[in-house]
């Protein structure tokens, strides 16, 4: 077992908060604290309002799933949580989306630093066409990581439950891995940047049931150290892996509650109709 890497990135200041204050929620004993706080938040694609005045919190150290039909705005909201929508022409936001109390859409906030602290894993595994080792090591290196990079790579791969499968072939191309392994590599790549929050946009939709099971087990482990927000079409998956579930419909947040409540006695009729398949 490796020890947690001790090297530091060169961190631009996110905002007025100190670096120590920002890193505090990853200590693992802070369940219940709020990591992301979203207040009256909207996202527009030019005139179209994809996310409508959403207000919710993402508690630390827990898995929050966002479910809803296609086009409901769940992926847009997820991508807004680390400013991934910034690169899309015509996108604008209103309201506040705060990370540890700092509005990530504030003027002084660096989106690159936001994405370092709030990592993302996409629907389809997207490893770089490089070796397994370099896939993990690349981002920490260009961010000025000063510790033992081999230790960091091993730690990230272990946390992503991939180390035992790849430890003897770290120099091989990441593209030679299976789909499930590639996705766990992408999770390891995100972990290597030592984020606080992991955003996952349908991370299992391109995977078979066995690979999906690996990722779900991994999410359960990851929540001990990270806050996870998961967008999924698979309601059973949301029920299995998340602590809290948010249901969105046509850009609006209809209901958010403990997952067991959402899937046994939801308060809103729309939620009940959706989870039972009586929708539309």
């Amino acid at each position: 077992m490796t020890v947690a890497p001790t090297g530091n990135m060169v961190k631009p200041v996110l905002s007025i908060k100190s670096t120590n204050a920002l890193r505090q929620p990853s200590d693992g004993d802070n369940q219940g604290a709020t990591h992301l706080s979203i207040e009256d938040f909207s996202v527009f694609y030019r005139e179209f309002q994809a996310v409508k005045n959403v207000t919710m919190v993402v508690p630390s150290g827990r898995v929050t799933a966002i479910i809803g039909p296609s086009g409901c705005g769940k992926s847009t909201l997820l991508r807004a949580m680390n400013r991934m929508n910034d690169l899309i022409p015509g996108v604008r936001t209103t309201g506040r989306l705060c990370y540890l109390g700092v509005d990530i859409y504030g003027r002084e906030c660096d989106p690159v630093e936001v994405r370092r602290r709030i990592g993302m894993v996409f629907q389809r595994p997207n490893p770089f066409p490089k070796s397994i080792f370099r896939n993990i090591a690349w981002a920490p290196r260009i961010n000025g990581y000063r510790g033992d990079i081999s230790n960091l790579v091993e730690h990230a791969l272990r946390q992503a439950a991939l180390w035992d499968e790849v430890k003897d072939k770290l120099d091989q191309s990441a593209l030679a891995l299976s789909g499930g392994q590639q996705q766990r590599l992408c999770i390891a790549r995100a972990i290597a940047m030592q984020p606080d929050v992991l955003l996952m946009d349908e991370p299992c939709s391109a995977l078979d049931p066995i690979a999906t099971s690996h990722i779900e087990d991994l999410i359960d482990e990851l929540k001990k150290q990270y806050t996870v927000v998961l967008v999924t079409h698979n309601m059973q998956q949301a029920a299995r892996v998340s602590d809290r579930t948010a249901f969105m419909y046509m850009g609006e947040l209809i209901e958010i509650d403990e997952t067991r409540t959402i899937f046994t006695k939801p308060k809103k009729q729309q939620t009940e109709d959706y989870i039972t398949g009586r929708f539309g």
């Binding site: 309601m235 059973q236 029920a239 899937f263 046994t264 006695k265 939801p266 009940e272 989870i275 039972t276």
Partner: peptide, 9 residues
């Protein structure tokens, strides 16, 4: 069918 909500109940 792995029912949820009122169907599960």
């Amino acid at each position: 069918y792995q029912p949820v909500g009122p169907d599960l109940r």
